[in-house]
């Protein structure tokens, strides 16, 4: 059976991370399984956790009255879900819902924050990884905003 450090080690988010740091982080974690439809997170609820998705798909959603949930993005194996635990007030800004059976490692946010404060080297290594995830997500969102599949953009160039 694989240990938690093994599982983290295999995940893209922790690729090339220092073994000691991984073992240290793993002490804040536990394995968890969600069934399709289960929520990993609810908007405005306390954000105490950070999920390393090993298998299955997670939808990042927001609920719109008279409409239902709008899915902004789907995450899958190799992704991570949740960074609201990083900054006060530690509340989820979106819903996270399992689209099928999701296997993940749940890491305790408070525990991680304390470890990062105590060991700035670990903190920096982890924050670099989060910064990468955030810029990737921002990039994706920007491309999404561009409506890149539209073949019929109106010309903005006046020709002057």
């Amino acid at each position: 059976m694989k240990t938690l450090p093994d599982l983290l080690h295999e995940h893209a988010f922790f690729k090339d991370m220092d073994e000691d740091h991984l073992a240290f982080i793993a002490r804040c974690g536990e394995n968890c399984i969600f069934n399709a439809g289960d929520h990993l997170a609810r908007e405005n609820a306390p954000a105490n956790d950070f999920y390393v998705i090993r298998d299955g798909r997670v939808a990042v959603e927001s609920y719109v009255p008279n409409h239902g949930s709008i899915c902004l993005q789907t995450l899958q194996s190799g992704d991570i879900f949740g960074w609201s635990w990083l900054f006060p007030p530690y509340l989820w800004t979106f819903d996270g819902r399992a689209l099928d059976e999701v296997h993940a490692v749940r890491l305790d946010g408070k525990c991680l924050r304390e470890k990062c404060d105590a060991d700035p080297k670990l903190g920096y290594a982890l924050m670099k990884r989060f910064a990468r995830i955030v810029t990737d997500r921002l990039h994706t969102t920007r491309v999404q905003l561009m409506d890149v599949y539209d073949q019929q953009k109106t010309s903005l160039d006046s020709g002057k």
Partner: peptide, 9 residues
């Protein structure tokens, strides 16, 4: 059943 986001993801 598919992905939501962009193809580059």
């Amino acid at each position: 059943p598919g992905h939501i986001g962009v193809i580059t993801g």
